[in-house]
């Protein structure tokens, strides 16, 4: 315990911060920093980087991204994402928090990977 208990608590409470590289399919790229207790979407909003979103509860997939490098964890169950997409690195960025530096594919067109025309 340090001389100043309050400071120690403050240090203990401060979650690690990671560098996120957000990459769009048209080649655009942005870097933002995110702590482990904030979602990728919130971190991007804080940095004035606009990402798609809808329900903000993990139910609608509007915010779907794909983790190309690094690791995220969902703070709330990503209910709308089927297990095979989770295994393929897809994540719901409205509820996904970084656990390492990450490179994440973002943009509205990532969501379109999840479904296709079943009759075609």
């Amino acid at each position: 315990m340090g001389a100043n208990g309050d400071d120690d608590r403050a240090v203990d409470a401060c979650p690690p911060v990671h560098d996120l590289t957000l990459t769009w399919r048209d080649g655009r790229e942005e870097s933002v920093r995110a702590s482990e207790d904030e979602t990728v979407l919130d971190a991007a909003e804080q940095a004035d980087v606009s990402l798609p979103f809808g329900c903000l509860t993990g139910a609608c997939t509007t915010c779907t991204g794909r983790t190309l490098d690094g690791r995220v964890e969902h703070g709330r169950p990503p209910r709308a994402l089927k297990p095979h997409y989770l295994n393929d690195g897809y994540a719901l960025l409205c509820v996904a928090e970084p656990r390492s530096n990450c490179r994440i594919e973002v943009g509205a067109d990532v969501q379109t990977d999840l479904v296709s025309n079943p009759w075609k």
Binding site: G54, C55, A59, C60, T61, T62, R79, A80, L81, Q111, L114, V115, P118
Partner: peptide, 8 residues
């Protein structure tokens, strides 16, 4: 919603 919102 978790069923129809992602798509069909």
């Amino acid at each position: 919603p978790k069923t129809y919102q992602p798509g069909f």
